[in-house]
């Protein structure tokens, strides 16, 4: 298991692999479906391209909406997939740094 910080985020996003996602998701009581993987893959690509996690939950929702449209780019959908603060939960599972503006 790669190194993680006190909130469970990977110290280095490049150390992520899919089994890690399964493991972290289980800690949150989430069993990963195709819909989860779609968002996780989106976040991995997002981080590769922009070197930043979506900084807040609103911007996470906005970025998902840009990519997948209103059906998936809304907070209810994302909250159902990634309970709690969706941006935080999803970034943790996807091995990305903690969104800077999420409490």
């Amino acid at each position: 298991m790669p190194e993680r910080n006190s909130e469970g985020f990977l110290e280095k996003p490049e150390h992520w692999y899919p089994e890690i996602a399964e493991f972290i998701a289980r800690e949150d009581g989430i069993s990963l479906s195709e819909n989860h993987w779609e968002i996780i893959k989106f976040l991995r690509d997002f981080y590769r391209d922009y070197q930043v996690s979506p900084p807040s939950n609103r911007l996470f929702v906005k970025a998902v909406r840009e990519r997948f449209g209103e059906d998936k780019g809304n907070s209810i959908y994302l909250m159902q997939l990634f309970p709690g603060t969706p941006a935080k939960t999803a970034c943790r599972i996807a091995g990305l740094p903690r969104p800077t503006n999420c409490l």
Binding site: F46, D49, Y50, Q51, V52, P54, L59, K62, A63, E66
Partner: peptide
């Protein structure tokens, strides 16, 4: 440079 490229996506 990469961070800024996300600017249009965020609006």
């Amino acid at each position: 440079e990469r961070n800024l490229a996300a600017a249009p996506i965020f609006g």
